[in-house]
Amino acid sequence: MIYGFSVFLLVCVLVFGKYAGGSRRWLGLGVVSIQPSEFVKLAVIVMLARYYARVANVNGLTFYELFRPFVVVAVPFMLIVRQPDLGTAMVVLLIAVSMTLFVKVEKRLFVCLGFISVTGGPLVWFCLKGYQKQRILTFLNPDLDPLGAGYHIIQSKIAIGSGMFLGRGLGRGPQNALSFLPEQHTDFIFSVLAEELGFAGSFFMIFLFLMLVVWGLNVAHGCREPFGTIVSVGVTAMIFWQVFINVAMVTGLMPVVGVPLPFISYGGSSVITVMMCVGVLMNVSMRRFLME
């Protein structure tokens, strides 16, 4: 039901969605806007966990067993790419790949899919839109267009570097206060944190996320039913990939894509999704103590 509703909302976005910043990602609901692509993450996790819990076996999944998961991921993936929101689409794909590899695929199939991904990957370039190609070129050489496409990442790196060890103090970071940082309250909030709380604050935040990921895997390990284990791995993968992509993006280790930092970035849909996911994780964790 969650999955069907999420896909329905994605279709609504393409038809009635608000057009902002060159893409159509939000649905206006009176005074608030929601981003349905965020809810899709949890929907895909639950759908895949439900299927994998039934078919997973020690020999690994076969090509035919992967067909249904492929459809489940491909439908929302294509709808999100159409918005276009490559970052969220990539997170959905990475969650699905992480869960699939966790339940194991046949060795021959794994090699085959790996080969196709490596050889077919470069062809994705020809499917990208102009601004997406520009972001990759800027990632490779930020000085290519310092006042245009490279501006975001250059300002972000200046902010992170200027924080030094203990930071400049809350509200005292010039990159933030003088509005040099773009999207400082959403995707680039890590740069504000690094500028104002320095390496110590950034390290503490990343340490908390690391603890969350380790604890999520611990919950998965302790669960006695396959569904709970796989859903926990999916939720943990979601948090891990979002943090990894966001931090790598603002530090210039990856091209700029619109992925929020869980719990930290401003955004209702992101906050609600990640809290629902934590609710699921707490649920699985508590059920370890159910009597047989």
């Binding site: 809350l170 909030i189 719990f263 930290i264 934590v278 964790s285």
Partner: peptide
Amino acid sequence: RFDWCLFGLMFLLGCMGLVVLYSAVTAG
């Protein structure tokens, strides 16, 4: 049986997020 560790991590990250967000939207 409640997972206090998970709750604590979420609470700490949420508080940190609100403090940094306040700074991001008000400074200067």
